[in-house]
Design a protein around this nucleic acid. Structure first.
Lengths: 239, 239
DNA sequence: CCGTCTCTGTACGCTATCGCACATAGGACT
DNA sequence: AGTCCTATGTGCGATAGCGTACAGAGACGG
């Protein structure tokens, strides 16, 4: 269900019944997201929510000293701006574009209106939020118990699942920021993967050559998250 | 707002308007929770949700090899069983009683009915869930960037905020399970706190002597979480 | 073609935490 | 009192990741 086959659509919108989607369609605005762009700052209210298409957005927790960690990845399967309909309006985390591309944008108020109609959209968004909860929880465990090697594999696979090709545009420096480790640590781990013939790395472009190989090295956290997304956001279960 | 003053009530129920509460009151059943009791197993549907009163419940992520990490603490300010109304019915995490005490219990279906009336209860539960999201996110960062010393302080303070007294019944072994570190690591950190005169430790009973001292040592994660709970679950903001 | 900048690779000592082993001590039960 | 169990303290060597420094190498503009 969540196989990355159709990047013309956002999975959430795709799961929405026609009638419900009809309310929103006229207000969906396609926008281009550039690498590093911020969609949401800590404690600031968002004017819009975003439904990524071929772009990836990272939710980051940034600390006072500037150190950061990614707490979740959002791609075509999700929405950026959960706090709007959850009622808090803001979050302490940031949303940064991690892979440039496109997204549908929707005025926050319009989303809230649709959400509070308590129909299919609400049910869908809540299920998605639960998937997000799982991703965050698993990130917390992974940060505690797994090596940088494993986490890098997890990160590559989670990102890859949200991209159309097998190439990723991302420097090691940025990956290090996401994982909350040193850049050198990423260099080393990526070097191992490259020597093993799983990826090929070149100045900010990562090509994944042997995906099954990555899957063999990744910790269980990847599959736990993936399985939960599949379960929660699946045609048969959702409606 | 979230000061631990009234442990006869659960803060969520307390925030609910009289009329809404009236629907539930006849079905709330006061139960005793014992240390180590499991309220929810990975992937299993819960029959009830729980509103802790003077008890504390930990949400744990357990891995295949048995290692675990606490991803959130739930006390009188919250509810155990978020996945029921979020639509997923189950979660991959476990809910374990970390401090014995009491809770109100409510049949899952009744909670869902109330939730889907899309009234005050729904708004409240969603705000609470957002607070939970923040707690998980902050746990993830904390696991990545902070020392065991700091995490122990955070854990003590978060637990203390949910308890009536200044004493905590908990062995170092169990704390280690929560934090996902070695027992010896906790022994060492707790030893430092004891030498500094902040706590006194005795075979599974921790007395907090100098709370401001703990607050001086804790990492920012504690206050980020606390502030967000206060903001989201506050009489003025909620309704 | 040259200088500059960004990205990647490598090396080295340092520290926190781990894994393990074992010692001590308080409580509970006989 | 003696025994056992559980909780805590301590002392290792091993190791993963950190901080720092620096070197090479591709890209890019003048």
């Amino acid at each position: 269900m969540l196989e990355p086959h159709d990047f013309k659509q956002n999975a959430l919108l795709n799961l929405l019944p026609r009638d419900d989607l009809a309310h929103l369609l006229p207000h969906l605005e396609k926008v281009t997201l550039t690498l590093g762009q911020s969609l949401s700052e800590s404690g600031r209210q968002m004017s819009h929510v975003y439904f990524p298409l071929d772009s990836i957005v990272s939710l980051l927790c940034v600390m006072e000293n500037g150190a950061s960690t990614e707490i979740a990845i959002v791609g075509y399967e999700g929405i950026v701006g959960v706090s709007l309909f959850m009622g808090g309006e803001t979050t302490p985390s940031r949303a940064i574009v991690q892979s440039a591309g496109h997204a549908y944008r929707l005025k926050g108020q319009l989303l809230k209106n649709e959400f509070y109609r308590a129909g299919a959209m609400q049910r869908l968004l809540l299920r998605y939020t639960q998937a997000l909860l799982t991703q965050m929880a698993q990130t917390a465990v992974c940060n505690r118990h797994h090596s940088v090697d494993q986490q890098l594999c997890r990160w590559l696979l989670l990102s890859l699942d949200r991209l159309p090709g097998n190439e990723l545009v991302m420097t090691q420096e940025l990956i290090a920021n996401m994982l909350g480790v040193r850049r050198e640590g990423v260099t080393e781990s990526a070097g191992k993967l490259q020597k093993a013939g799983l990826i090929s790395y070149n100045r900010g472009r990562i090509k994944v050559i042997d995906r099954p190989g990555l899957e063999a090295r990744v910790c269980e956290c990847y599959s736990v998250v993936k399985r939960e997304y599949d379960r929660l956001l699946n045609h048969h279960n959702v409606m």
